[in-house]
Design a protein around this nucleic acid. Structure first.
Length: 783
DNA sequence: ACTCCGCATTTTTTT
DNA sequence: AATGCGGAGT
């Protein structure tokens, strides 16, 4: 039975239950507000649902699907519903299931990538692949590129493989096959980018492999070159729904447009203010241009927010208003006013982590104005993943349970990738990349020399590496102790491969056998490094994950697309994640640390993409604030350790953009949360705290008490310095001239245009972090 | 063939 | 601070 029959056979089986559904009432509509209802009922042409944060777009999207099904307009397998993450797809499926009972056959609901794989497996031969092609991850991709770079005699130091990978990725995102890369890109990668791109694609084809970008690009290529295939899908997929449309790239846009061309029934949901994947090729332009791309489109705005309090909403709106390029919408809510967004400055990143840890505990106990909060309801959202460490460190020392979301991904771990390579090789013995990865892992005495021999032999005979190795062994051309071990390896692979073909074999047992007999498990058992036990744990988890699949093939196919760590523990924990990972989530309590210029907005983003980059950073700020339901706290630190170096910074420019009426500037806790907060605020927030009587504030007293019980590691110096604000660009201390790059710190009081800094009272550790010394010896501090 | 050590480079975000 | 690489040494 070919795949077309499969689809139609399934379609024929559906109508019965369809009729049953049609008789049901429509409670899903009663639940919606007018705008949402309109979005559900506009079924005659293209629809753009502009859904701001927290406006119930998933609800509307789900209702639309339910509506299509209940009214019998579409069978489950005629609905194409595309999301960006597996999680979002799962959630949508769950919600539809909850409303209609388990719905069978929503087979076209998934991510762009997973749906593309499904399509590509059916038509792989049209782009020169076999339907059992493998999907390379970044690591494999990089190794492949490195080989090509070396072969092309390019100095990999000056022209790193990562750069080429990024370049190719960008081209694929724009749906450029090697032939279509415009001449203007010719200079890329030392004039050899396009050439290498072509070689890379050839190599992938030879390996029967694709990378992530290919999944989409190949499908687009097939659709463009084979109208009959396209027509087939257009016939099947009568209704298209797209989530997070603002994050689509050119390839995804073409993919959608080709499919929607015939019936034009496409409903895209998105929020231009939440487009945060520009660096991945996302084109905000896609959503801004929707009405032009799909003539006759209905645009519906969802503006009632059900998530956040008015203060939080106003703060977010205030920030995003500074962006020029947006469709614009006004979010409103009926919720109670609630707390203002809190803003606080800290002396350094460690103090920030301490303070947030304390806050979390206080909120948990209910010693704040809002109700006691479970740890699950709190999240810390950071700009860059390295910021998470400070929180992990702190939370570990105070014993606060936390979970890191989107950390180093399970399936990207060394041991998991090794194990997977074994599985891949057992399933498809021609998987050369897998072979390369594991021939000598664990060590089998096969060094560069032996591996090169295998490569040469395989190439000479046009065989996969595994067979090349076999041939060498047969000829007795492999010397020494490597030979015996290689033979065992090859024979093991043959054995395991045969098992994969046995009907009804136990794939879990097989996986265990492979890891056992190959000596892989033993390798880690003998390893004495501290991380070895954890790795063995992970391998166990990997085997456990197999239970959800019927065989190794099925598992491997999914794993390459599932990048999320799926383990959901029941225990209450604070979540720590990046802002990017937080999109689509919501939490009653949100902390947004690290709002310092250069870190957030990220310097690199601004350098590389200028105003466009800054606007994307601003959208990221918007996403962050709008995650919060009742309490949102923004913070920054005057000093932060970056790559082991202390650096100082100014509060983020986004802090200036927070509307003062909706922000509570917290009194700096004193001592280590020194006056920088006050000073920074003074400029940022209209001098409102300039006169704050820090010494008499409860916060100061609390900090003094705390200082007694929690000593600082760094010694404190006593020094009184007065800096003239007018001459703040440079000043002299002793016989050295200091140039002030960033603003002032540790302000205890502002008097006229002088800064009076009492280092003893402010508890300063050292001042190097705040002034950049002109001389090279920056760490030689005179204070 | 493999291990160890010193030097260099690095990090924004991820399907 | 942490990792990766190349080269020297075993």
């Amino acid at each position: 039975m070919n795949s077309f029959d499969e689809h139609d056979a399934f379609a024929a089986a559906v109508p019965l239950s369809q009729r049953a559904m049609a008789a049901r009432p429509t409670p899903y509509l009663d639940d919606l507000n007018p705008a949402q209802r309109e979005a559900v009922l506009a079924l005659d042409g293209p629809v753009l649902m502009l859904a701001g944060a927290g406006t119930g777009k998933t609800k509307a999207l789900t209702a639309r699907i339910v509506h299509l099904l209940t009214t019998g307009r579409a069978r489950p397998n005629e609905i194409l519903a595309v999301t960006f993450t597996n999680k979002a797809a799962r959630e949508m499926k769950d919600r539809v299931g909850r409303m209609l009972g388990q719905v069978e056959g929503l087979q076209w609901m998934g991510t762009f990538h997973s749906i593309s794989v499904k399509i590509l497996r059916r038509h792989a031969e049209l782009v020169g692949l076999k339907s059992n092609f493998t999907i390379l991850d970044t690591d494999d991709q990089l190794r492949l590129l490195k080989q090509l770079i070396v072969a092309a005699n390019i100095d990999e130091k000056r022209w790193p493989a990562r750069m080429l990978a990024g370049l190719i990725d960008g081209w694929k995102n724009r749906a450029w096959t090697p032939a279509k890369v415009p001449a203007s890109e010719a200079s890329a990668y030392n004039n050899r980018g396009t050439e290498l791109y072509e070689q890379y694609q050839d190599r992938l084809k030879a390996l029967n492999a694709t990378d992530f970008g290919d999944l989409l690009l190949h499908v687009v290529t097939i659709f463009q070159a084979h109208p009959d295939v396209l027509a087939q899908y257009q016939r099947w997929l009568k209704f298209i729904l797209v989530d997070e449309y603002q994050d689509t790239n050119v390839a995804q846009y073409l993919w959608l447009r080709l499919l929607a061309q015939a019936h034009k029934n496409i409903c895209c949901v998105g929020d231009d203010d939440q487009s945060i994947y520009g660096w991945r090729g996302a084109e905000v332009g896609n959503i801004l241009r929707f009405e032009k791309d799909f003539p006759g489109a209905v645009v519906i705005r969802l503006e009632q927010n059900y998530r956040s309090t008015p203060h939080i909403l106003a703060a977010a709106s205030g920030i995003i208003a500074a962006n020029a390029n947006r469709l614009g919408k006004t979010l409103w809510t009926e919720r109670d006013e609630g707390e203002k967004v809190r803003l606080i400055g800290h002396w350094d990143g460690e103090e920030e982590a301490r303070w947030i840890g304390d806050e979390v505990e206080a909120l948990q106990k209910g010693t704040r104005r809002i109700d006691p909060q479970g740890l699950d309801s709190m999240a810390i959202l950071v700009r860059a993943s390295h910021q998470m460490r400070a929180f992990e460190d702190r939370f570990l020392t105070i014993g606060l349970p936390y979970r890191v979301i989107g950390g180093p991904r399970f399936y990207e771990r060394l041991e998991i990738r090794d194990a997977m390579a074994y599985f891949r090789l057992a399933v498809s013995p021609e998987d050369d990349l897998a072979f390369e990865r594991v021939v000598n892992t664990p060590k089998r005495g096969l060094g560069d020399k032996a591996q090169q021999d295998i490569q040469r032999e395989a190439r000479a005979q046009g065989l996969p590496l595994l067979d090349g190795a076999r041939a060498l062994l047969a000829r007795g051309a492999i010397g020494g102790k490597g030979a015996g071990q290689l033979r065992a390896f090859v024979e093991g692979m043959d054995r395991w491969h045969r098992v994969t073909h046995q009907q009804g074999h136990n794939h879990i047992a097989l996986a265990e056998t492979i890891l056992e007999e190959s000596g892989y498990t033993a390798m880690w058992q003998q390893d004495k490094t501290p991380e070895a036990p954890g790795r063995l744990e992970n391998l166990k988890e990997l085997v456990k994950a197999l239970e959800q699949f019927e065989n190794l093939q099925g598992f491997l196919e999914h794993v390459s697309l599932i990048m999320e760590n799926e383990t959901e523990e029941a225990a209450q924990k604070v979540s720590i994640m990046t802002l990017h990972a937080a999109k689509g989530l919501e939490f009653p309590v949100v902390f947004l640390p690290g709002w310092e210029d250069g870190l957030f907005p990220s310097q690199r983003s601004m350098d590389e993409s200028g105003l466009k980059g800054l606007e994307e950073e601003r959208r990221l700020a918007y996403v962050g604030i709008t995650r919060a339901e009742v309490l949102c706290t923004v913070s920054f630190a005057a000093n932060r350790r970056v790559y082991g170096q202390w650096q100082s910074a100014l509060p983020s420019r986004f802090i200036d953009e927070l509307p003062a009426d909706h922000v509570d500037v917290l009194t700096p806790p004193g001592l280590y949360g020194g006056g920088f907060g006050a000073a920074g605020m003074a400029s940022a927030m209209d001098a409102r705290v300039a006169s704050a009587d820090v010494y008499n504030s409860p916060g100061w007293k609390r900090m003094q008490d705390r200082a007694a019980t929690r000593p600082v590691s760094q010694p404190r110096e006593t020094r009184h310095v007065t800096i003239d604000l007018d001459a703040v660009s440079s000043f002299t201390l002793g016989d050295r001239v200091f140039h002030v790059k960033f603003g002032y710190g540790a302000v205890v009081a502002i008097e006229g245009d002088k800064l009076d800094v009492d280092f003893e009272q402010a508890g300063l550790k050292k001042i190097v972090a705040r002034f950049v010394v002109a001389a090279a010896a920056a760490d030689d501090v005179p204070f």
